Simulated assay, not measured.
Amino acid sequence: MSKPKGTPAPKSKSKPQPKSKSKKPFVIGAAVVAAAVVLGVASYQATSPGSGTKSAASSDAVEPPAGTFPELEKLARRDGKDPLAQGRADAPVVMIEYADFKCSYCGKFARDTEPALVKKYVDAGTLRIEWRNMPIFGAESEAAARAAWAAGQQGRFWQFHTAAYAKGSKEKGFGADRLRELAKEAGVADLDRFVRDADGDAAKAAVKKDQDEAYGLGATSTPSFVVNGRPLAGAQPLDTFAQAIDEAAAYKAARTAGPKGTGK
């Protein structure tokens, strides 16, 4: 089976990691969680056929979907005031997206897949999408991430997201003038405040927090996702995301209902 498409992060100067599936912990904030594998390996297991784990829809024991790590579900912030999220804070399924505005595969997902997920699942109250900035392509990636955060402070993050990921937008770069132009296109009301916010310490801290979370998970490419504790890597086909969301929602419903519909 070929690996899912995704954009690799720049190589570090450290010694190359062995290709074997050695066990490594996830890191959530300051706590080290003894999960079995890093995100890339977990993603492969979650999307590979014949994994041997039954989905919630077919299991009387209410087993979680294949490749799910309960500790990773805690990454969902579920902050109703988070401007970098869309969907109900209490939605049964949360999909966390780690992405970079200079990433071609992230743009493909944003244009070709995400709108369909929003229409089918977010609008229906089943799914919440929480964005995490994971800039991996240098200064312009960092600047675009901070600019997106700044647009969010005026309630225009998702409009900025759409403008930045529009076809051909990445090729124009993300210099200061271009970012201001994107903010204007996104309907950001106070452009001077936008510039101040994007250059401020709060924006830098917010981006670093998201980036550290992604690297702590072992994510090495964009886009990377966690769907109710189930990692997925790369711009997967729509059906892959739909299956993960459907299985997560069915599992959540089964747990709520209790064994054989007892409600316990």
Rank of each mutant, 00 (worst) to 15 (best):
S2D: 12
G6A: 15
A9R: 04
S12C: 10
S14P: 03
S22K: 14
K23R: 12
K24Q: 12
K24M: 09
V32Q: 09
V33T: 09
A35H: 00
A35S: 14
A35Y: 02
A42L: 11
Q45H: 11
S48T: 15
S48Y: 13
P49Y: 14
G50L: 13
S51D: 12
S59A: 15
V62S: 05
P64C: 05
L72S: 01
E73Y: 02
K74Q: 06
D79K: 13
D82S: 06
A85R: 02
R88N: 09
A89F: 09
V93A: 03
V93E: 04
M95A: 12
Y98M: 08
A99C: 09
D100C: 06
S104D: 07
G107N: 02
R111I: 03
R111A: 02
A116K: 15
A116W: 02
L117I: 11
L117G: 01
K120H: 08
K120L: 07
G125K: 10
T126V: 15
L127G: 02
R128P: 04
E140G: 06
S141T: 07
A144N: 07
A145T: 02
A148M: 08
Y165N: 12
A166Y: 05
S169H: 06
K170E: 01
K172M: 09
K172Y: 08
G173K: 11
G173P: 05
F174L: 05
G175H: 05
L179S: 00
E185D: 11
V188I: 11
A189M: 14
D190N: 15
L191A: 07
D192I: 14
D192S: 15
R196M: 13
A198G: 11
D199K: 15
A202V: 09
V207W: 00
D210M: 03
D212N: 13
Y215F: 14
T222W: 06
T222M: 13
P223G: 07
S224Y: 00
F225A: 01
V226M: 12
V227F: 03
G229D: 03
R230W: 06
L232G: 03
A233K: 02
A235H: 03
A235R: 03
Q243I: 10
I245E: 00
E247W: 13
A250V: 13
A254Q: 01
A254E: 03
R255P: 01
T256M: 04
